[in-house]
Design a binder for these strands. Sequence first.
DNA 1: TTACTAAAAGACCTTTTTATCTTTTAGTAA
DNA 2: TTACTAAAAGATAAAAAGGTCTTTTAGTAA
Lengths: 142, 142
Amino acid sequence: MFNKETEYALRGLVYIQLQNTNGRRPGIVEIAKEIEAPQFYTAKILQRMVKLGLVSSLKGKGGGFYFEEGKKDIPLEELIMQTEGNKTLTGCGFGLKQCDCENPCPLHEQYAPIREAINKLVSTETIQSLAKRYTLKSKTLL
Amino acid sequence: MFNKETEYALRGLVYIQLQNTNGRRPGIVEIAKEIEAPQFYTAKILQRMVKLGLVSSLKGKGGGFYFEEGKKDIPLEELIMQTEGNKTLTGCGFGLKQCDCENPCPLHEQYAPIREAINKLVSTETIQSLAKRYTLKSKTLL
DNA sequence: TTACTAAAAGACCTTTTTATCTTTTAGTAA
DNA sequence: TTACTAAAAGATAAAAAGGTCTTTTAGTAA
Ligand code: FES
Ligand code: FES
């Protein structure tokens, strides 16, 4: 469904939110280990997320990644647009240059509703709503 | 949605079916040009499809690609499994090693129905049904 | 202010995907 | 049987994705 970068960012951010709720600011070594992702690659990705303002980080002793108090929830869509652009969410399933309802490909009628459902999912769900769901069910992240 | 290989194979096969219906066996140069795909790459992909038995081809003058008379329709699923394996059709949306209904990720409840819809689409639609839809609407392939 | 800690930055590497080109082989038609 | 045609095969390569490692910088705590 999504590429590795999106997956690692998604799992990483959800883990950060989860730990923040417990009053902790996890560091990259811990995050990577817990979400079973390559440490340095995940670091690079999360650093990019910080630059984009999706999450914050603090250097030095006691530092780590965290979400600012009062920051509003982050829809998955925002993340996906940064990691893979809009092709996943708006592209034609048949590979045409663009999906054009006026001149639909033979997959359009069947595929468009599915793509709509995906769009609804990623605009409704947020990093925070996923984290909350984890807290409720208290499952592992793997 | 799908990768380039799948897209080129899909568009190529639909084009072949479309031309077959008109009593023609298109060659690779024509196919690539019509579906706006890189010629040699498309050739390689279609040759693989021939080896897999999804389509047939004939060398020499008057040769080209074609579907055997009486061959049964090819569901898109069959093509996708060959070009990208089952990850697209059965993988976990959150990137867990596998989607496990007993131990679902926080996306599972929302994502599983969408994945189901995709599976239904690719097992119901075939190269032939897509080609027929084109014939009916007489649209271009781009 | 020192020692330590953790992220930031960026160079570097590997694998996979996507793409191109040349040579060979097999077939057709005349 | 010759000339031609078109796919088959496979070497090569560019680009993108995925991943690793080292050095630097900024911050904290004691
Ligand atoms: S035109 Fe192909 S999905 Fe809309
Ligand atoms: S467990 Fe993630 S989609 Fe089913």
